[in-house]
Design a protein around this nucleic acid. Sequence first.
DNA 1: GTAATATAGTTTCAATTGAAACTAATCGCA
DNA 2: TGCGATTAGTTTCAATTGAAACTATATTAC
Lengths: 154, 154
Amino acid sequence: MTDKPEHDVLELERFLPYRLSVLSNTISQAIAEMYERRFALSITEWRVMAVLGRYDGLSAREVAGRTAMDKVAVSRALARLIGAGRVRRQTADHDRRQSVLRLSAKGWKVYGQVAPLALEHEQRLLAHLDPSEQRSLADILDKLWDAELEEIAR
Amino acid sequence: MTDKPEHDVLELERFLPYRLSVLSNTISQAIAEMYERRFALSITEWRVMAVLGRYDGLSAREVAGRTAMDKVAVSRALARLIGAGRVRRQTADHDRRQSVLRLSAKGWKVYGQVAPLALEHEQRLLAHLDPSEQRSLADILDKLWDAELEEIAR
DNA sequence: GTAATATAGTTTCAATTGAAACTAATCGCA
DNA sequence: TGCGATTAGTTTCAATTGAAACTATATTAC
């Protein structure tokens, strides 16, 4: 007769936060390497460019809000992007503390190359899931996100 | 009549690698904060303790393999853990390059407190999913992992 | 046996990141 | 108006991380 263990065993490789972390870091790192090698672009810089490509004229604070980056990280990414001539910055007429950020022509050219590559990578991953699994994944990630927000609010 | 866009738009907040990254970092950071505050334990240190709690007497290389950390990170985490008296290190008889790592009594005490807290946090997240979703998530993470391994091998 | 190669783990040095302080502009309100 | 509090964004300084070199031991080929 075998005893029931007093508590569940923590098996790291089955522990959800660990699995998510390893999977996510592996995916991000692989993508980052490609961006870096082919476009001399870091993940943080790419995130900034991605939101500026979608929403023109954001302020740095708005970029931070849409990229889950903090304002220091955004400031540094912007310094590099502006230095490389990929982003242009003006000051906002209505509030001279704020900036108005736009991709430059050069920035748009990079965006036009990187965005399809990013989407392709995503599609190659999703191709391993059937459509119902894809929906299910999207749902589940939403639920986990809500769950974690509650958890944080505790 | 509306034109079909030439390519799919990259909407960062729907982009799988981004969503995974934000979710995973948020979860990890919340857990990390708890470990840090209550046990003065970093995530990397906890991962090392977690595998030593499960597999006694591993070498540093084996710890690295089971935690998805590199050997430098393991070496540093071990230095802190040994310094804090939470892990003991011997040299392996059969190969004096290798170490034989074990939790100390003090280490086991910490393990005994942290492991249930970690499992509770996981359960609180999973409680937002019904059992079929939980199975589905496990499946999908496996498939994405395989997919990414293939992607890397390309 | 011994020289060349490989492996386990640590250290060093540079680059990245995080936290706090800082500057400049705006807001709230007497 | 004008003064304290707030907000946008940057800078500074310390802590963390990553890459490469390094030490010590073991293995392989001769």
